[in-house]
Design a binder for these strands. Structure first.
Lengths: 157, 157
DNA sequence: AAGTGATATTTGCAAATGCATTTAAATCTG
DNA sequence: CAGATTTAAATGCATTTGCAAATATCACTT
C-alpha cells in the first residue's frame, strides 16, 4: 500500500501568496475578527460570547453541540462562554425534552438587546470589507462561499 | 456631535447566517485551520510556526513586524514561535543592516525541507475546499478576496 | 547635539484556549 | 435486558495567547 501524500501540482511560490485563497481568507478574517474584538471588548464580550449571541439571535434554542459548530468554538470553550453569558442573564440553558444529556440555549431579552448593540459593529466591519465591490460580485462571492462550506462540512449541520 | 453608530440597513435575521459572508468565511477557515493543525501537530508545528514557515518559503528575509502581518499573528506570539523554530534550526534571525532595532528572518534548508512536507497538506486542504468549483469561478473568487484584502489593510503591507 | 517621541522586538503575566478526562444519559448488541 | 459503547456537556490542567510594560534604537525638533 502507498501511504505517500500525492505531490501537489503547483508550489506555493508558483501560485504566490496573494493567489492562495486560504492565505487571503485568513488575512481578511484575522483583521475582521480583531477589529470586532477591539470594538466589543468594552462591552465585556469575547469572540466566543459575541458569536454565541449572534447565532442565537437567529437560531432559537440550538443544542450546545450545534452552537459549537455554528460559532466555530471548541465545546469546552463554548461551555465556559455560556457560563458567563448566563451569569449576566443574556442566555438561558434548558435541558432538552427528548434527551436529558443535551442542553438547548436560548437568548434572553437583555441578550437580544445587547446583540442589537453589537450588530452595527458587525455590519460595519462587513461593509468595510466589501467597500467598492459591486452587488453582483458580492452575490457571486457568497455563492462560492456556500459551496465551499458544503465541501468542508463534516457533519450535517 | 453625534456618537451614534448608524443603524445598518438590514438585520442579521433578514440576511440569514448563510448569506452573511463573515460567518461563512469563519466557518470555512475554522475548519481549514483545525484540519491543518491536526495534520501538522505531529510534526511539532503550531499554527503560528506553520504560517511562518509557509510565508518564509515565499518571502525572503522579511522583518518580524512584516512577518507578523503576513502570518496574522500577534508580534509577541510570533516572537515566541520564532524562538522555537530557531531552536530547531528551521529559521535564522539576522539584525537588519540599516536599522539595528529590526530583525529579519530567513528560512534555513531544514526549514524549507519541513515546509515541503507541510505543503501537500495545505494544498490538499485547499483542494478540498474548492472541490467541484469551476476554474473560472475560483479565479473570480480569488479576485474578490484580493479586493477585500486591499479594503481591510491598515498598513501598506 | 540633547531631548522628546516613535518604532521594533522581547518579556511578564493574567486570561483564554483546547485537549483529555469525567459524569451522566442514551443507544446498541448479543 | 444487562453490559458495552457512544454521545452531550462540563471540568481539570497544561499550554498558548495577547495585552501591557520593558528595552533598545531610531527619527525628529529646536
Amino acid at each position: 500500500m502507498n501511504d505517500e501524500i500525492p505531490t501537489p501540482a503547483q508550489r506555493l511560490g508558483e501560485i504566490g501568496l496573494t493567489n492562495f485563497a486560504p492565505y487571503l481568507m485568513n488575512r481578511i478574517m484575522g483583521r475582521y475578527n480583531a477589529s470586532l474584538r477591539a470594538d466589543l471588548s468594552e462591552m465585556g464580550l469575547t469572540t466566543p460570547k459575541m458569536r454565541a449571541l449572534a447565532v442565537l439571535s437567529v437560531i432559537d434554542g440550538p443544542l450546545i453541540r450545534e452552537l459549537a459548530v455554528y460559532t466555530v468554538t471548541d465545546p469546552s470553550t463554548l461551555s465556559r462562554a455560556l457560563d458567563q453569558l448566563q451569569a449576566d442573564g443574556l442566555v438561558r440553558r434548558e435541558t432538552d425534552a427528548a434527551d436529558s444529556r443535551a442542553t438547548r440555549v436560548f437568548i434572553t431579552d437583555p441578550g437580544r438587546a445587547l446583540f442589537e448593540e453589537m450588530w452595527p459593529h458587525m455590519a460595519m466591519a462587513q461593509a468595510r470589507m466589501f467597500r467598492g465591490i459591486p452587488e453582483e460580485e458580492r452575490r457571486a462571492f457568497v455563492g462560492t462561499l456556500q459551496k465551499m462550506l458544503a465541501n468542508i462540512r463534516k457533519h450535517e449541520i
